[in-house]
């Protein structure tokens, strides 16, 4: 078996998502930059916003799994070997972390627009 070429993966993802690939990448980059910027600017994590974003993260993780099941015509009963559970956990984790970062950044920016000088729970 030959080695995997990253260019091949890129081509496949382009075929898979079409223009949405760029939307997904852009959304991820914007959310990550916003999150990092907010944390650096405030010098700490707001525990209140973090809790809310973690709640959103749980929902995001579950949503990611449900979407995957729907898109692939699958059921949870189809999970067989350990690699299947690893895949399911990875999908959940992706939805979980993505939602936390996105929601935390959104709440923070929203809070700043309302009270630019001080943090929400400060």
């Amino acid at each position: 078996m030959k080695d995997l070429n990253p260019i091949v993966f890129w081509a496949v993802f382009q075929e898979m998502l079409g223009p949405w690939l760029w939307v997904v990448i852009a959304a991820s980059v914007v959310a990550t930059i916003a999150f990092v910027w907010v944390v650096i600017r405030e010098g700490r994590l707001s525990s209140r916003r973090l809790v809310w974003s973690e709640v959103a993260g749980l929902a995001g993780g579950v949503a990611a799994l449900l979407i995957m099941m729907a898109v692939t015509n699958s059921r949870f009963a189809d999970l067989g070997g350990p690699i299947d559970w690893l895949l399911a956990v990875s999908i959940f984790a992706l939805g979980f972390v993505g939602s936390i970062v996105g929601v935390y950044a959104f709440l923070s920016v929203f809070a700043m627009t309302r009270a630019p000088a001080k943090s929400e729970d400060g």
Binding site: I7, V8, A11, V12, F13, Q14, E15, M16, M68, V71, T72, N73, S74, D78, L79, G80, G81, I83, D84, L87, A88
Partner: peptide, 27 residues
């Protein structure tokens, strides 16, 4: 030789994009 969900997932969502990339000479 194990019946796996991951193998099904590949068939469902990754095979066609890979095939199309192959047609274009990109994969």
């Amino acid at each position: 030789l194990e019946e796996l969900w991951i193998s099904w997932v590949m068939k469902e969502i990754a095979l066609k994009p890979t095939y199309l990339a192959m047609l274009r000479g990109r994969a």
